[in-house]
């Protein structure tokens, strides 16, 4: 987990953040939050997986990404309007650190260094990494017109 979200902090800032945490567990299938609900909490996953989804009237919940061990679940609590852009469901049994957003936001306002460290971590590890991943998926690299590789059944011409 050291290279997960918490790995991006200095020891002091990580301790500071964890002082706001409590450990929680969700059974598989737990709805953690819904799209457009107020973002009042966030989580760092310790075990298990959470699917982020978007609801389509015809197709139901469309999973856009899965988060796992060490990853930050939720960043909408950090930016206005503090509402979830997607929904989240536990894919299997999940254990996580859970944080209330209010006291963490207050700490950010009060301690600029801590605030910068936290904002940086959210931006680089969570949002940045996911944005890069998302862009790569946009390329649809494995689409049928591309073999992916000549050395596994491609075609010179």
């Amino acid at each position: 987990m050291s290279d997960g979200f918490l790995g991006a902090f200095s020891d002091a800032h990580r301790e500071r953040l964890l002082s706001f945490a409590r450990t929680v567990s969700f059974p598989a299938g737990t709805r953690v939050f819904d799209e457009d609900d107020p973002a009042q909490r966030f989580w760092v996953l310790r075990h298990g997986h959470v699917d982020l989804d978007c609801h389509d009237p015809a197709r139901g919940a469309l999973v856009v990404e899965t988060l796992g061990e060490g990853e930050l679940l939720g960043w909408s609590w950090l930016f206005e309007p503090y509402r979830w852009h997607l929904g989240a469901t536990a894919q299997d049994a999940v254990t996580a650190y859970e944080f209330d957003a209010d006291p963490v936001r207050a700490a950010i306002e009060q301690d600029a260094r801590f605030g910068l460290a936290l904002t940086r971590s959210v931006a680089s590890v969570a949002i940045g990494r996911r944005l890069r991943a998302c862009r790569i998926r946009l390329l649809d690299l494995y689409r049928p017109t591309d073999t992916g590789r000549a050395s596994a059944g491609g075609e010179p011409r």
Binding site: E65, T66, G68, G70, R129, A133, L141, Y142
Partner: peptide
């Protein structure tokens, strides 16, 4: 899981300084 293959790295069991990786896929990947 849903997402690109690199997002799985966070859940793999390896010590980076003592690991060999074998990667195959489209060049962008």
């Amino acid at each position: 899981d849903v997402g690109v293959v690199t997002t799985l790295l966070g859940r793999a069991a390896f010590t980076p300084s003592d690991t060999t990786a074998f990667v195959c896929g489209p060049e962008v990947m």
